[in-house]
Simulated scan of single mutants.
Amino acid sequence: MQQVCRIFLRDVIPLFEPSANISLSSLQDAPALVVVMAFFLSWILGWVPLAAISAIAIKWKPFQPLQPEQKLPLLIPLYLLAPLILWGTSWLTKTSFSEYGFSGNISTFSSLALGLSLGVLGIAAIFSGQIWLGWCAFQETNLKQVRPILLPILLVALLVGGVEELIFRGFLLTELGKNSSIWTAAIASSLIFALLHLVWEQQETIPQLPGLWLMGMVLVLARFTDKGSIGLAWGLHAGWVWAIACLDTAQLVNPTDCVSEWVTGKNKKPLAGVAGVVCLLLTGGILWLRF
């Protein structure tokens, strides 16, 4: 992967700055756009052969819709590969992971635990409110399905949340912030974060795009609140994914259809409804007060 990154940077950098004298051993002054493009291109090129192997293993055929159980074998290699590609990028640009907000110390993991708790509590509060208002019904008989899925989904949520925060609120926000204001970088990185979700499901993702962008902005605020660390954002992200995935997998909460699905979430996706947006705004308000 480092070789791919080297070749790409060597060939593309002159197109952006023909007069720049930048060596591959020292790319601190490379344009942020080049660094970002090199990372994402290397990530995609590295993942494609792994995805092909996974697709064969799960017997998926091109242009056929992916079933929920088929997504995980394709996602896991993508997310496991990302830190390796980012390590190669950071080595070429001489940027440490601590500059991207990850230091691996006790403070990071204590913020992770705090964010995880806040994320789960936020989802619990929003769905409890909807149940109380009669917008959703709680399926008590499905509680027995929760215990066996708690740990596996938590591990997946921590992986997904950790990798996405390292990339979008860590690497991407930091790189874009080098050539623009931090709020411009926040808006742009959150927009990229939202749009990239279209890769998997277009019809279900389009209604979620405003919510996904707002989610990205709240997670940027979480990094500011945590003094540049991605620990709190990682915890929030993982907490939201964990709570929603558990509710969805066990089918613990179902809409009663007494209000529009745009209130509870179109296609049962909280970010595509008013309730999910309210959850994000409340979380953002708490972070802003702390900030």
Results as ranks from 00 to 15, higher is better:
Q3Y: 10
I7W: 13
L9W: 11
V12C: 07
P14K: 08
P18K: 15
P18I: 08
N21V: 11
I22C: 06
I22P: 01
S23Y: 04
L27Q: 14
P31H: 02
A32H: 03
L33K: 12
V35N: 08
V35K: 07
A38H: 03
F39T: 06
W43P: 02
I44Y: 10
L45K: 03
W47Y: 01
P49T: 07
L50V: 02
L50A: 12
A51W: 00
A52H: 09
I53T: 12
I53D: 05
I53N: 07
A57S: 14
W60S: 03
Q64H: 07
L66H: 04
L66P: 01
L72M: 13
L75K: 09
A82Y: 00
L84R: 10
L84G: 14
L84F: 14
I85S: 13
T95P: 06
G101E: 06
N105S: 12
S110R: 14
S111L: 14
L114A: 15
L114E: 12
L116T: 11
L116M: 10
L116H: 02
L118E: 10
V120I: 13
L121P: 03
G122K: 04
I123E: 03
A125P: 05
I126F: 10
G129T: 04
W135Y: 11
C136V: 08
E140A: 15
N142W: 08
L143R: 09
L154S: 05
L155H: 02
L159C: 08
L166S: 08
F168H: 01
E175Y: 03
K178T: 12
W183D: 12
A186P: 03
I187K: 00
S189C: 07
A194Q: 01
L195R: 02
L196I: 04
V199N: 00
W200S: 00
Q203F: 02
I206N: 01
Q208H: 04
P210S: 01
G216S: 03
L221E: 10
A222Q: 06
D226A: 10
I230G: 06
G231P: 07
G231S: 09
G239S: 10
C246E: 11
T249F: 04
T249R: 13
Q251P: 11
Q251D: 15
L252M: 14
D257V: 08
V259D: 07
S260D: 15
E261W: 10
V263N: 07
G265V: 02
K268I: 10
P270K: 05
V274S: 15
A275G: 13
A275H: 09
L281H: 02
L281M: 10
L281R: 05
L282F: 13
I286H: 09
L287V: 08
L289I: 11
